[in-house]
Simulated scan of single mutants.
Amino acid sequence: MVALRRLTQARRSPTERTALAGEAAAEAAEADLLALEATPAATGQAPDGRPAAKPPKAPAEDHTPTPDDPRAAAFFDCDNTILRGAAIFYLGIGLYRRRFFSRRDVARFAWQQAWFRLYGSEDPAHIADVQDRALGLVAGKRTAELEAICEEIFEDVITRKIWPGTRALVQMHLDAGQRTWLVTAAPQEVARIIARQLGMTGALGTVAETVDGEYTGRLVGGLLHGQAKAAAVQALARRENLDLSRCAAFSDSANDIPMLALVGHPYVINPDAALRRHARAMGWRVRDFRTGRKAARIGVPAAAGLGVVAGATATAIAMRRRRRPA
């Protein structure tokens, strides 16, 4: 990360900043993965020495077992794909409750969240505004402090705001022996917590520059958004020896078309209008969990080894359970 820090302090073109943001995200994701593998839970033991609890699996009839495929992975966008709403909004409200923000900041966050829920897509100006304010507020603060706060904030958010259908798709890929990665413009500290609580392999998020364990108020490269997400996926694929033609990606936003176009099996979840049009033109599968209506089946053959039919079954069961009266 030292070399990346030196690079980000220099004047860079937009293309160079995008590539740098992607490389930084991939490097941070690999570092998180190595740290996780070194924990007791990764070796099958809980911190107190007892066997670690295994995550729940879908019933046997909900999926078709397939061989492990170390060169395949699934990449999931976060906001409105896995999470109802925007992670940065929940982070902002959580920080306000801990006196990081003013009421005026919260009003701005609320307006941005209302826009997101109404139009189903990110506004780049809103994202940049949130980024600038957040960076200014965390400058000089310890990374460990923010990570502890994020743990508190997102434990409750994950419980209440995850789309059951997308969660079933994540589990389907894990059951198929494939790695699953969250890819989001949210800070890496937030991304790794969401990924960990969902049992995912890891996360690619926006990397904030740090020196001696404190935030500087700058990003490494820039926000992991749009083309930068695609750069991060490519960088991680090189590091992890993934075959992108055998990988899948899931997103709700036309901003993520570069990432979706990278993989052999793109899937569209809760799409905005622009992405829905693009998906129809490209023949990408569409699934919408917002109303419970069936996904538009638009002619992409099931990916070998991905268990797409099994994923559809698991998702339908999850949605049916959600609609069933208590």
Results as ranks from 00 to 15, higher is better:
residue 149 I to R: 03
residue 141 K to P: 00
residue 148 A to L: 15
residue 133 R to Q: 15
residue 130 V to F: 12
residue 131 Q to G: 12
residue 180 T to P: 06
residue 127 I to P: 00
residue 140 G to F: 11
residue 228 A to T: 05
residue 139 A to P: 02
residue 193 I to V: 14
residue 227 Q to M: 11
residue 210 T to F: 10
residue 186 A to C: 06
residue 213 G to L: 03
residue 191 A to R: 06
residue 207 V to Y: 06
residue 135 L to K: 05
residue 198 L to M: 03
residue 193 I to H: 12
residue 179 R to F: 04
residue 190 V to Y: 04
residue 186 A to P: 02
residue 184 T to C: 08
residue 226 G to K: 00
residue 230 A to T: 02
residue 172 M to L: 15
residue 139 A to C: 04
residue 140 G to R: 13
residue 141 K to N: 07
residue 122 E to Q: 13
residue 145 E to M: 11
residue 211 V to F: 13
residue 229 K to M: 11
residue 167 R to H: 15
residue 186 A to L: 02
residue 172 M to P: 02
residue 119 Y to N: 05
residue 168 A to Q: 01
residue 185 A to M: 10
residue 186 A to N: 04
residue 154 F to W: 06
residue 163 W to T: 01
residue 181 W to R: 07
residue 155 E to G: 12
residue 141 K to W: 10
residue 207 V to C: 08
residue 165 G to P: 05
residue 188 Q to A: 13
residue 204 L to A: 03
residue 146 L to M: 04
residue 192 R to A: 08
residue 235 A to Y: 04
residue 185 A to P: 03
residue 153 I to N: 01
residue 232 A to E: 06
residue 212 D to Y: 15
residue 145 E to A: 13
residue 157 V to M: 01
residue 182 L to S: 02
residue 130 V to T: 10
residue 204 L to T: 02
residue 209 E to R: 05
residue 121 S to L: 10
residue 219 L to P: 01
residue 158 I to Y: 07
residue 191 A to F: 08
residue 122 E to V: 13
residue 149 I to Y: 07
residue 139 A to L: 06
residue 177 G to L: 09
residue 164 P to H: 13
residue 122 E to D: 12
residue 153 I to M: 01
residue 210 T to Y: 10
residue 190 V to F: 04
residue 214 E to Q: 14
residue 187 P to E: 00
residue 176 A to V: 13
residue 194 I to L: 04
residue 133 R to A: 14
residue 234 Q to E: 15
residue 222 G to T: 08
residue 121 S to V: 04
residue 182 L to D: 06
residue 123 D to W: 08
residue 124 P to H: 00
residue 185 A to Y: 03
residue 125 A to R: 14
residue 162 I to W: 00
residue 190 V to P: 01
residue 220 V to Q: 05
residue 151 E to H: 11
residue 184 T to R: 09
residue 121 S to A: 11
residue 227 Q to G: 10
residue 149 I to D: 08
residue 150 C to F: 15
residue 181 W to I: 12
residue 127 I to E: 02
residue 227 Q to D: 15
residue 129 D to F: 15
residue 204 L to E: 03
residue 189 E to R: 06
residue 233 V to M: 14
residue 200 M to G: 08
residue 229 K to E: 13
residue 217 G to R: 04
residue 193 I to T: 12
residue 222 G to Q: 04
residue 186 A to H: 02
residue 210 T to S: 13
residue 223 L to G: 01
residue 129 D to M: 14
residue 211 V to P: 02
residue 195 A to K: 05
residue 157 V to A: 00
residue 165 G to Y: 06
residue 148 A to P: 12
residue 143 T to F: 04
residue 141 K to E: 12
residue 218 R to L: 10
residue 170 V to S: 02
residue 212 D to V: 09
residue 189 E to T: 11
residue 149 I to V: 11
residue 233 V to C: 11
residue 226 G to E: 00
residue 229 K to V: 11
residue 169 L to N: 07
residue 169 L to I: 14
residue 182 L to E: 05
residue 193 I to C: 09
residue 151 E to Q: 13
residue 214 E to H: 15
residue 217 G to L: 07
residue 143 T to P: 00
residue 201 T to I: 11
residue 143 T to L: 10
residue 217 G to A: 05
residue 178 Q to Y: 12
residue 152 E to F: 14
residue 164 P to R: 11
residue 206 T to R: 03
residue 184 T to P: 03
residue 189 E to N: 07
residue 146 L to N: 00
residue 159 T to I: 07
residue 234 Q to C: 12
residue 232 A to L: 07
residue 127 I to K: 07
residue 168 A to G: 00
residue 134 A to L: 15
residue 191 A to E: 07
residue 191 A to S: 10
residue 165 G to E: 11
residue 191 A to Y: 09
residue 225 H to W: 12
residue 122 E to H: 14
